[in-house]
Every structure is written in C-alpha cells, then in structure tokens.
C-alpha cells in the first residue's frame, strides 16, 4: 500500500481539494456580503444616524463608537505591549523564571476566550475599579463609573489584544541583528540607550504591524463589549469616557437577532457587515504589507 499509486493521487488531490475548499469558503462569504451590502452602502449610510426606530438611516454613531474604542484601546495597549516585548527581547535572560512566567502568561492570555475577558471587564473594571471610584468620588447614589462605558470596554479590549502586540513587536526586535546591539554597547552605550537608539528605531515596522493587527482584532470583536459598554441605540454620540457607545459589530448582532422585523432591515444589516469587513480588511492588509516589508528587510 505504501507505494500504491492511488494513494499518491488521493494525497495530492485530497489535500489540494481541501485547500481549494477553504479558498472557496472565503470567496463565498466575501462575495455574499459584498453583494448583499453594496446597494445600501452609500456616503449617506456612513454619515447619518439610524432613524425611524433603526429601520432606516445610517451607522455613523456605530462607526464613531468603533473608532473611539479602538483608539482608546491602542493608546493603552500598544505601549504596554511594546514595553513587554522590549522586556522579553532585550532585558530578560532566556533562562530567567520571571521571563518564562511572563511568556507563559502572554500565551495564556492569547487563548482566553473573548467572553471571559468580558466577564473580567465586568467583575474587575466595572464592579471593582468603577465601584471603588464611585465610592471615592461619587455622591453614593448615582452610578457613574460602576456601569458599562467606553473606558471599561476599551481597557478590556486593550488587555485582550495585548498578546497580538507583544508577539509582533518581539518578532521585529529579534530581527534586529545582534551585531548592532553589540556595536552600540561596545561604544559605551547603556542598555536603555541601545534599546532606545538602535533596537526601537529598527523595529518601528513591527510596532506598527502589532498596533494595526491589534486594532483589527479589536475592531471586529464583539463578545467582550456585550456587557462592558456597547449600547443598542443612543440618540447622541458619546462625549465622555463614562458614556456608553454604539458599535459596528454589536450593531450587526442586535439588528440581525433582536430587531422586530429582521427582513425589513436586511439591507442595513448587510451594509453594516460590509463596513465592518472592509474596515478590518484594510487594517489586515496594512499589517500584512508591513510585515512583508519587515521580513524582506530582515533578510537583506
């Protein structure tokens, strides 16, 4: 059997068919959403708020909410992720127990389900931190921080996307040749000077890639914000960190599962999905391009 020609054919054809199936699946999903959403997608759809009980109008507030959330998330998550990567790549000895703990934690963090992050956001940020803030600064009656809002949703998301940033930045730093570090140290530069003046400037692409990937992941993930800040409908845009917000992914979820007349808003649902898909795509393409450039440079 080990040299049966049919087995060879089966292996090659079978694995090729599997690959083809995956490509087809991607094409079908993309085509379906593109075709379904194309007609409704317009400048007005992007720039107007929902009207008539969300059966007409656009998704502007949801776009704003998504942007605010990923921006806040990046402001917190990218620096923390980058510094952790600096630690792992530049400071930690490969054998130190502390570094191994952190590496294990990063891997674990990457595998924690998004919904569990949501629970954590609720239990830690909203109940514990928010509750503490309200008791410290509030009047004891009105809840200001101990409730779902933009800040807690963004922070929850920042923690969730931390591994994405760390892995990407660390890879970029490891691509910086050891010779450059040695050159700097041999000139009497300190460790931090070497990191700051040699390693970091040469891993900027990795930092960008990490940031973009995290934003892309964050923009598409809904589970952690189901109960940490997203709202079904708000008449106005959020104007403080303690406001709730509308959000593209959440919008798709509620429109397609909880609206009274799903059929009537099908166009809006498709168009919203298309907007989210285009947003995450362009981000992913940017990341793929940056990474490609980075690897090419690492080889050169």
């Amino acid at each position: 059997m080990r040299n049966a020609p049919w087995l060879g054919t089966l292996t090659v054809v079978g694995s090729g068919a599997a690959a083809l199936t995956i490509i087809l699946l991607v094409v079908v999903v993309m085509a379906n959403i593109l075709i379904g959403g194309w007609d409704t997608l317009s400048w007005e759809f992007l720039s107007a708020a929902p009207t008539e009980g969300m059966t007409a109008g656009g998704v502007f507030p949801a776009i704003v909410g998504t942007f605010l959330r990923v921006i806040l998330m990046s402001i917190v998550g990218v620096p923390i992720g980058a510094i952790t990567a600096i630690y792992l790549s530049e400071y930690a000895s490969q054998r130190s127990i502390f570094a191994r703990f952190i590496r294990f934690a990063v891997n674990t963090l990457a595998g924690v389900p998004a919904i569990v992050f949501g629970l954590f956001g609720l239990g830690f940020f909203i109940q514990f931190v928010g509750g503490g803030m309200d008791r410290a600064f509030g009047d004891g009656v009105e809840l200001r921080w101990a409730q779902p809002n933009l800040l807690w949703a963004s922070l929850t998301m920042a923690l969730m996307t931390l591994p994405v940033v760390i892995v990407s930045v660390e890879e970029a730093m490891r691509n910086v040749p050891r010779e450059l570090r040695e050159a700097s140290l041999a000139l009497g530069a300190s460790r931090w000077q070497t990191v700051y003046k040699v390693v970091l400037p040469n891993s900027i692409t990795g930092l960008l890639t990490g940031g973009v990937l995290a934003v892309s992941r964050g923009a598409g993930e809904v589970a952690p914000i189901l109960f940490t800040g997203a709202a079904y409908f708000l008449p106005h845009l959020p104007n403080s960190l303690s406001d709730q917000f509308m959000e593209l992914g959440y919008h798709i979820y509620v429109m397609s599962t909880q609206s009274p007349d799903v059929e009537a808003t099908m166009g809006i649902q498709y168009a919203t999905t298309l907007v989210l898909l285009l947003l995450t795509f362009s981000l992913n393409f940017a990341a793929v391009y940056l990474r490609y450039r980075m690897r090419k440079r690492a080889i050169a």
Partner: peptide
C-alpha cells in the same frame, strides 16, 4: 498557489466572528 492560499487564510483569520455569525444566520 501558495501565494493565493496563504493570504486567503489570513483573510479568513481576519473575519470578525460577528461577520461569520451573521453569514451563518442569514
């Protein structure tokens, strides 16, 4: 083929789960 396959899978990895959920639902 490799040059088509790998990006295609990366695209699939980039699909937000809510988009897949929506596709499945509808």
């Amino acid at each position: 083929v490799k040059e088509i396959l790998k990006p295609a899978i990366e695209i699939l990895a980039g699909f937000p789960s809510v988009v897949i959920g929506f596709f499945a639902l509808i």
